[in-house]
Write a protein that binds this DNA or RNA. Structure first.
Lengths: 238, 238
DNA sequence: CAACAACTTTGATTCAGATCAAAAATATGA
DNA sequence: TCATATTTTTGATCTGAATCAAAGTTGTTG
């Protein structure tokens, strides 16, 4: 009965098809194609007409905006199973860049939009995704506008840890950072030197350890949480 | 034929009903009620269960997030005809505060969600609103993360000017600021002293004039635009 | 219209993070 | 494995905006 459930797709269209029936899944299968991008490659340019929507199969991509003189700010981070593209929009107003090597599962926009029109629960799913992104954007505005460098770094590490735990609750405290210091700086509204200094300050305090360029281990999660500056209520405990 | 087109509603449910037929409008009329809030009053607290969605009839409201120690950051600004509340969400994760005196046209959430389920074009309209908010949030992230105090203030004034022109293309350069220096500071990720200094610097340079506490006149729109730091392409001219 | 409260401006000082400048560590690849 | 390129760390200095502190405005209310 579930014979065609996205059978050859590593992420099984998780972003769109949780409640799709076989017929809908077949439609998705028929409009999809995979594409690989190298690290640093631009997937979509600001203002470019949208020809596909896509879901991330593997790797990390980011959304970035740039000022006149070249200062840039990341405004979104896309991890596997996240979705790119918005129904009804003709173009994006930021650049989408492959942060690491990225594989996309792309759907042609025309038939995809037809599918959205035909199936209210897909439309509803996309609405949920948009609202999740909006909530994330608002947390990020608080971070960018009011947090100190230390709080920004602690929040960043905590977010990676939570994302990892969500994907695999049995995981240990070891994290692979998907970005260079420079990319992290663009994400947090800092410079790369400040990012480096704050990582090493947390290391010196025994909150984390660093090994190689991208391995972090969280030693003291409570201290890390405390360093984020966030309101503690709304959390799981206390 | 259009007898019930939101006849006694000052904003005619602009946020939701552009394409509603008479039957749908009657349903909206039957679930609506007006409510007034004084300036400074909290309309909804973070975490509180959502009982209404609403559209702003008059006044200005803001969405705010707060850190442990009280630092706050506005994450959204709602002007007349803007919409509060999201389909499918049980609560909001920020405070909604009346910045000025505010009148809301509220709809009970249960029948409203039923209406959304029944009418795809209303669902689609809400999706557009969410995507507009997302785009605005991302512009704001660029501002908060990378712009200087001067650029932030120029961007703020320019936004008010554009909103005013959108509402009434025949308007002159005079603007009424809907917020105090302190509220503007919370919007832009600054302190109120810095806001004051930057307003007065632009005044001294002849870019704007200030009169009373809340009247601004834009004298030199080009200089103002130039001071925003934004990429000039994508604009109307050049 | 006087007195008060709320808001805004201005000035002096401090400080977090940016900037500038090497040096050190880690990767990459011949 | 050695040479080279990239990324990260560390140090010194500078600066924009925060902070602290009055004084000056504007608006409100009895």
């Amino acid at each position: 009965m579930n014979a065609v459930r996205c059978n050859d797709c590593p992420i099984r269209h998780r972003a769109v098809c949780a409640r799709c029936d076989d017929d809908e899944l077949t439609r998705l299968e028929n409009m999809k194609s995979y594409k690989r991008y190298d690290a640093g490659e631009t997937i979509m340019w600001r203002g470019e007409p949208l020809e596909h929507v896509a879901s991330i199969v593997d790797g990390v991509a980011s959304l970035s905006k740039t000022l006149e003189d070249g200062r840039t700010q990341m405004v979104g981070l896309l991890l596997p199973s996240d979705f790119i593209g918005r129904p009804g929009r003709k173009e994006v107003e930021f650049d989408v860049v492959a942060t690491t090597e990225v594989t996309l599962c792309r759907f042609e926009i025309k038939p995809f939009e037809q599918l959205v029109m035909d199936t209210p629960h897909v439309a509803q799913r996309l609405m949920e995704l948009a609202l999740d992104e909006l909530d994330a954007a608002r947390d990020w505005m608080l971070l960018l506008g009011r947090k100190t460098a230390r709080e920004k770094i602690a929040t960043f590490i905590d977010m990676l840890a939570q994302r990892k735990i969500a994907g695999n609750p049995e995981s240990d405290g070891t994290l692979e950072m998907p970005m260079t210091r420079d990319q992290i700086a663009n994400y947090l509204g800092l410079t790369l030197e400040t990012v480096s200094r704050q990582f090493n300050a947390l290391k010196k305090e025994g909150v984390i350890t660093l090994s190689g360029r991208k391995q972090i281990e969280v030693i003291d999660l409570l201290a890390l949480r405390d360093a984020t500056g966030d309101d503690s209520d709304g959390g799981v405990l206390s």
